[in-house]
C-alpha cells in the first residue's frame, strides 16, 4: 500500500537520505531499524510531508504523496506517531484525542473510536480531563498512539515509540502495536530497539547513513550475523 522509490532528502548541502526504496504491504508490520542519525525520522517526515524530498516518489495506494500537503496526507489515511510523542501539552487528553480526529466529519464513528481508544488504553480514560503535559512519559506515548488512531488511518507510522520507556512499558507498547495491527491497521515502525521491533515485524529494512543495506523478514534479519553484531549486541 505504501511504496517509497528512490527517495532522496537533502538538508542544505547534506544528503540525509541517499535514494532508498522500500514498501509496506496491506496489513503488514514493517520495521525500519538503524542507529541514531541513520535517517529514520527524516524518512518518516518525508512520508508525512513535513519535509520535501529532493527526488524520488512516495505513493499510498498508487497516489503520489511527495506533492501533497501534510494535512491532505492524513485525510488519505496515513497517520503518524511522531518521535518524542509531541502531544499538545497544554490541552487535555480528551482534546488531544479530538485533535487526532480533526479531519473527520462522522461524529458518531469518532465517538465510537474514542471509546475504542479508551478500551485499548484504560489509563487515558482515567486521565481524560488532565492536561497532556502532566502525564508520565509512558502515558504520553499512549496518548500519541491513541491520537494517531483517532484519525482512523489505514496505515500508521510510529517513530521510536519505545524511546525512554521502562522495560515493562516497552513490552506493553509492543503488545499494543501488535494489537493495533491485528485489528487491521498497517504499521510502519521505526525503532532503535531492533530486537523487539524485529520480533513483531513481518518484514524489516536496515537503514545506515541514508542507505538501505539489508532487507528481509523480521526473522531473517534477527538471525543475520551483521544485524546481530551491529544492532542486537552480538
Amino acid at each position: 500500500m505504501l511504496k517509497v522509490e528512490n527517495l532522496k532528502v537533502q538538508y542544505g548541502m547534506i544528503e540525509a537520505i541517499k535514494g532508498i526504496s522500500f514498501e509496506v504491504g496491506d496489513g503488514e508490520i514493517v520495521t525500519l531499524i538503524g542507529a541514531n542519525g541513520a535517517g529514520k525520522t527524516t524518512t518518516m517526515h518525508a512520508i508525512s510531508g513535513l519535509v520535501k524530498p529532493a527526488s524520488g516518489s512516495i505513493t499510498l495506494d498508487g497516489k503520489e504523496l511527495t506533492r501533497t500537503a501534510p494535512h491532505k496526507i492524513v485525510e488519505m489515511g496515513l497517520a503518524q506517531v511522531p518521535e518524542g510523542r509531541r502531544v499538545f501539552a497544554q490541552q487535555t487528553v480528551e482534546e488531544n484525542l479530538a485533535l487526532g480526529a480533526y479531519t473527520r466529519k462522522d461524529k458518531d464513528a469518532v465517538a465510537r473510536d474514542l471509546e475504542e481508544v479508551y478500551t485499548l488504553f484504560p489509563r487515558l480514560k482515567e486521565r481524560s480531563a488532565q492536561t497532556a503535559g502532566t502525564l508520565s512519559g509512558g502515558e504520553q506515548q499512549m496518548l500519541a498512539m491513541g491520537r494517531a488512531l483517532m484519525a482512523k488511518p489505514s496505515i500508521v507510522l510510529m517513530d521510536e515509540p519505545s524511546m525512554g520507556l521502562s522495560p515493562l512499558l516497552v513490552s506493553e507498547i509492543f503488545r499494543i502495536i501488535e494489537e493495533i495491527n491485528e485489528k487491521g491497521t498497517t504499521v510502519l515502525l521505526v525503532e532503535q530497539n531492533a530486537k523487539r521491533a524485529l520480533a513483531i515485524a513481518d518484514r524489516a529494512y536496515v537503514l545506515e547513513t541514508g542507505v538501505i543495506t539489508l532487507a528481509g523478514t523480521g526473522e531473517e534479519l534477527a538471525n543475520d550475523e551483521r544485524v546481530r553484531k551491529a544492532y542486537l549486541g552480538g
Binding site: 508525512s48 501534510p70 492524513v74 511522531p82 499538545f88 490541552q91 479531519t103
Partner: peptide
C-alpha cells in the same frame, strides 16, 4: 491552540 504549541505535530493531525 495546537498550532501555537507545535505546528509540525498539528500538521500530522491533518490541520491545515
Amino acid at each position: 491552540r495546537a498550532c501555537s504549541e507545535d505546528k509540525g505535530a498539528a500538521a500530522l493531525m491533518g490541520i491545515n
